[in-house]
Design a protein around this nucleic acid. Structure first.
Lengths: 188, 188
DNA sequence: TTCACTAACGCAAATTATTTGCTTTTATAC
DNA sequence: GTATAAAAGCAAATAATTTGCGTTAGTGAA
């Protein structure tokens, strides 16, 4: 009677999920968000509205689900130079992505949903990515901030500004990273 | 044709706004949020639904409006001891309030709305409060963090955790404050 | 005061979204 | 194959939203 969290791949359920997600992404990309409704999503996905209602509950949950799956990182972050340089590049891209119209809206969607599971997922994704840099630095004996410091003093200010204030610029982001690096008094 | 942002006090429009806000607060306090609908709010406020639709647009906007007006600070923060002690007490209360079920929900409401005006209002409220502590410290010649540092390294981590993770405890909050205070290496 | 003006409200019909009971389909395990 | 159960489809019933139009109540000028 209940719906599975992760449908078996290849099954009908998975196909419906994919079609609905795709439909939502298409619509968000091409039309005003206020005009995105469940009946329309259903029509474009060749599915009945009741299927969507039963599976996701309401539009907010569906949007949160789509947003969270879009915010999920594809793979390991790129490794070009030192751990610090890699981190800097990654954070800058992260900030840009989240501050963009689409990213901002995805953050909203994820936070707006009644169920906070999707929001927590996003936090987990971010920590997971950052942990990669920490592991790399450790392997090279490079001094590096802790995960907590990165989350509290780099990620949090960026997200706060995006949500409650103005989008942060790249100078600002670099300063945040510089400040949190150990053994180097905010050089630059 | 358009609705005023701030209706003239005493007028009919102001009475309707007050009744609707009150109705929303009552309902949020006594029933499940999923059951709070515009027709119900309207009935309790002795107003027609169409009035609410025309004025606020949809439920999210209305909830955001109510939440923002509830998050608006009443007056100046309390002054008991040194600026640092006052700040510590204020931040701790701030964190508790925001992390509570009600506070968390208000944050969500404010962020979920299509219009970001209410979210920005909240950020402004917070900065305004913090500026009071800074002014006090300056007057006493007490060393004190800048507004930017407080927003980035105290407020942001607290809000981020509430939204994407677990509610922060009071130990954690005190550590954030200690860390941001100048001329004192995270004493505690 | 009175009067003209208009923003905001009320009412009700029309539209659209949501819920729900029941049936049918389709993976999966036996 | 066949049985089973999760998930989808369909359609009727309910509930929310939009909208056109008439009414009310503050406002400002005579």
């Amino acid at each position: 009677m209940g719906y599975r969290e992760n449908p078996r791949p290849g099954g009908r359920s998975a196909r419906v999920q994919a079609a609905v997600h795709q439909s939502v992404r298409d619509m968000l990309a091409t039309m005003d968000r206020a005009d995105v409704t469940i009946p329309l999503i259903a029509q474009r996905a060749n599915v009945t509205p009741s299927t969507i209602y039963r599976r996701w509950g309401d539009l907010q949950q569906l949007l949160a689900d789509v947003a969270a799956s879009h915010l999920q990182p594809e793979g390991e972050p790129a490794s070009i130079g030192s751990a610090r340089e890699d981190l800097e590049a990654w954070v800058e891209q992260y900030a840009d992505e989240m501050a963009s119209g689409v990213g901002r809206q995805m953050l909203r969607d994820v936070l707006a949903a009644a169920d906070s599971a999707n929001a927590e997922k996003c936090g987990t994704y971010t920590r997971y990515q950052l942990a990669v840099f920490i592991a790399r630095a450790e392997k090279c004996g490079e001094p590096f901030p802790t995960l907590t410091d990165l989350m509290d003093h780099v990620i949090s200010p960026i997200i706060y500004r995006i949500l409650f204030d103005q989008a942060p610029g790249s100078d600002y982001v670099r300063r945040l990273v510089a400040k949190v690096m150990p053994e180097s008094a905010a050089g630059a």
